[in-house]
Amino acid sequence: MTPSPILDLAGLTLEVNHLGRGVRFYSQVLGLELRRHDEAAGVAEFTVNPHQTLTLWQPITRQANDERLAPLRPRGASHLHYAWQIDPAQLEPSKALLDAHGLEWQEINLGTDDRPDPTLYFFDPFGHGLELRGVNRDDARQPHFPPTPVQRPAHALPVMGLREVALAFGDYAAMKERLPRAYGFAYAKEQEDRDFAQFTLGPQAEPDGNGTPRRWLYAWDPQVGLADMLGGDHALVRFYADVDAVAGQVDAAGLLSVRDEQGLAVRDPEGHVFEFVPA
């Protein structure tokens, strides 16, 4: 099997209706480092760790949040469900931190009784669904950039980095065929009882769950998932990749794209925009 050119998850862009409120939430609750805050452009960018970023876009009429990507008509994702990697020992203290911030949370065991995988779910002020997922840093299934602890303020959740992003696709069958063919995503599996596919963000498809440090793209039809969370619409997601290899597949698929010294950006037929950057 040809290895996937997709190497890892690099960053997400969320749509917000109030940039200042978003900056406060992600600075205080997640303890992310703010590296750009431009009210005129409607953009705030955070450093998650040395290899990942989180960006907030507030839509501004007749103005692109990013002129470079304007030909692709990107938007920040609405009601995106995404997950953070966290040390399992920090899940219990995180409940107290969420309480202190006045945030409702829900705990769900994604494992089994003999091999539990407790996970915490909560929402940001804009309806994006956040998840705290324990990661076993000794697991052999390492991503291109392995998770490492990041020093956060005492009042912030002790997250290491982004784990996964979940996107909605209206035409599920076409998506499941297109993502491997047009971009090279490694299809891992789908659930038996719902239209929910998992793609490993790495050279080979691998099993999910039970603390794997690997990172993931989840894709499902428009439905309510766990903890009443929805997959994101018109998402903007950045991936580390072999850009030349992805470009060859994108060109063969005839998809609208922009390429420059920063990497390759592609508009998916469902309206998502994917960026591929070198590692």
Rank of each mutant, 00 (worst) to 15 (best):
T2Y: 03
S4C: 00
P5D: 03
L7F: 10
D8I: 00
A10V: 01
A10P: 01
G11A: 06
G11P: 02
L12I: 00
R21T: 02
G22T: 05
V23Y: 13
Y26I: 07
Y26A: 05
S27I: 05
Q28G: 04
V29H: 02
L32S: 06
E33C: 11
E33P: 02
D38P: 06
D38S: 13
E39G: 07
E39H: 09
A40R: 14
A40D: 15
A40C: 06
A41E: 14
V43D: 02
E45Y: 07
E45S: 12
F46K: 03
T47Q: 15
T53V: 14
L54W: 09
W57M: 03
W57A: 07
Q58G: 08
I60F: 10
T61A: 15
T61E: 15
Q63G: 02
A64L: 12
N65T: 07
P71V: 10
R73I: 07
G76M: 13
S78Q: 15
Q85M: 15
I86R: 05
D87T: 10
L91H: 09
A96L: 15
A96F: 12
L97W: 13
A100P: 08
H101N: 13
H101G: 11
Q106G: 11
G111D: 08
D113C: 06
D113M: 11
P116S: 06
P116M: 07
L120W: 11
Y121N: 01
Y121M: 05
Y121G: 05
L130R: 08
E131H: 03
L132I: 05
D139H: 14
P143I: 00
H144T: 10
P146A: 01
P146W: 08
T148N: 04
P149E: 14
R152Y: 09
R152P: 06
A154R: 13
P158Q: 14
V159Y: 05
M160F: 15
M160W: 15
G161D: 10
G161N: 04
R163Q: 14
R163T: 03
R163A: 15
A166E: 14
A168Y: 09
F169G: 04
G170E: 15
Y172H: 09
A174Q: 15
K176Y: 04
R178Q: 13
R178I: 06
R181E: 12
R181Q: 14
K189N: 12
Q191W: 15
D195C: 13
F199D: 00
Q204N: 11
Q204Y: 14
A205K: 03
A205L: 03
E206V: 14
G211E: 14
P213I: 06
P213Q: 07
P213V: 05
W216H: 01
L217Q: 08
L230K: 11
G231H: 01
G232L: 04
H234C: 00
V237S: 07
R238H: 10
F239P: 00
Y240C: 04
A241D: 00
A241Q: 00
D242V: 00
D242A: 03
D242G: 01
V243F: 02
D244M: 07
D244S: 13
A245F: 06
V246Q: 03
V246P: 03
G248R: 14
A253F: 11
L255H: 01
L256M: 10
V258E: 12
R259L: 09
E261N: 08
Q262S: 13
G263W: 09
L264C: 01
V266T: 08
P269D: 10
E270F: 11
G271N: 02
H272V: 09
H272R: 08
V273I: 08
V277W: 12
V277M: 02
A279K: 01
